[in-house]
Amino acid sequence: MTQLSTTAPDLAPAAVEALVRHLYGIEGRAQPLAGERDQNCLVEASDGRRYVFKISNPSEPPAVVDFQIAALDHIARAAPEQPVPRVVRTLQGHTHDTIKLTEGVQTRVRMLSYLDGIQIRETERTAAQRRAMGAGLAGLNRALNGFAHPGAAHDLLWNVATAHRLTEQLGSLVDGKRRALAQAFMTRFTTHVLPRLPSLRSQVIHNDYHLYNVLVAPDDPARIVGIIDFGDMVHAPLVGEVATAAAFHMAGCPDPFEGPAQFVAAYHAVLPLTGAEQEVVADLLATRHLITALISEWRAARYPENRAYIMRHNPAAWEGLSQMADLSRDTARDRLLAGVHLPTGATP
Results as ranks from 00 to 15, higher is better:
residue 56 S to D: 08
residue 63 A to R: 14
residue 72 L to P: 06
residue 290 L to F: 12
residue 64 V to K: 11
residue 208 D to Q: 12
residue 189 F to T: 11
residue 14 A to N: 04
residue 5 S to G: 01
residue 262 Q to G: 10
residue 339 G to R: 02
residue 309 Y to S: 03
residue 190 T to H: 12
residue 19 L to W: 10
residue 326 D to L: 03
residue 129 Q to E: 02
residue 295 I to L: 14
residue 251 A to D: 09
residue 118 I to D: 15
residue 20 V to E: 06
residue 229 D to Q: 14
residue 60 E to I: 05
residue 67 F to C: 06
residue 226 G to W: 10
residue 182 A to H: 04
residue 10 D to I: 01
residue 152 A to T: 05
residue 201 R to P: 11
residue 294 L to D: 05
residue 209 Y to A: 10
residue 82 Q to H: 05
residue 160 V to N: 11
residue 270 V to R: 08
residue 154 H to C: 07
residue 284 L to A: 03
residue 90 T to Q: 07
residue 270 V to L: 04
residue 35 G to C: 10
residue 258 E to D: 05
residue 223 R to L: 06
residue 314 N to C: 08
residue 173 L to W: 09
residue 40 N to P: 01
residue 232 D to R: 15
residue 219 D to T: 15
residue 91 L to P: 02
residue 251 A to K: 06
residue 62 P to S: 12
residue 156 L to K: 04
residue 304 P to N: 09
residue 336 L to F: 11
residue 173 L to F: 07
residue 11 L to K: 12
residue 152 A to D: 13
residue 59 S to Y: 03
residue 143 A to V: 02
residue 213 N to M: 05
residue 3 Q to G: 05
residue 97 D to C: 00
residue 227 I to T: 13
residue 98 T to I: 14
residue 14 A to P: 04
residue 295 I to D: 00
residue 103 E to Y: 00
residue 207 N to Q: 13
residue 36 E to L: 11
residue 101 L to D: 04
residue 337 L to R: 01
residue 8 A to S: 15
residue 249 H to R: 03
residue 6 T to M: 13
residue 300 A to Q: 10
residue 201 R to F: 02
residue 231 G to S: 15
residue 335 R to G: 06
residue 8 A to T: 12
residue 266 A to V: 03
residue 182 A to W: 01
residue 56 S to C: 15
residue 74 H to K: 12
residue 303 Y to C: 13
residue 101 L to C: 08
residue 324 M to F: 01
residue 1 M to S: 13
residue 170 L to V: 09
residue 126 T to H: 08
residue 178 R to K: 05
residue 301 A to F: 12
residue 337 L to N: 02
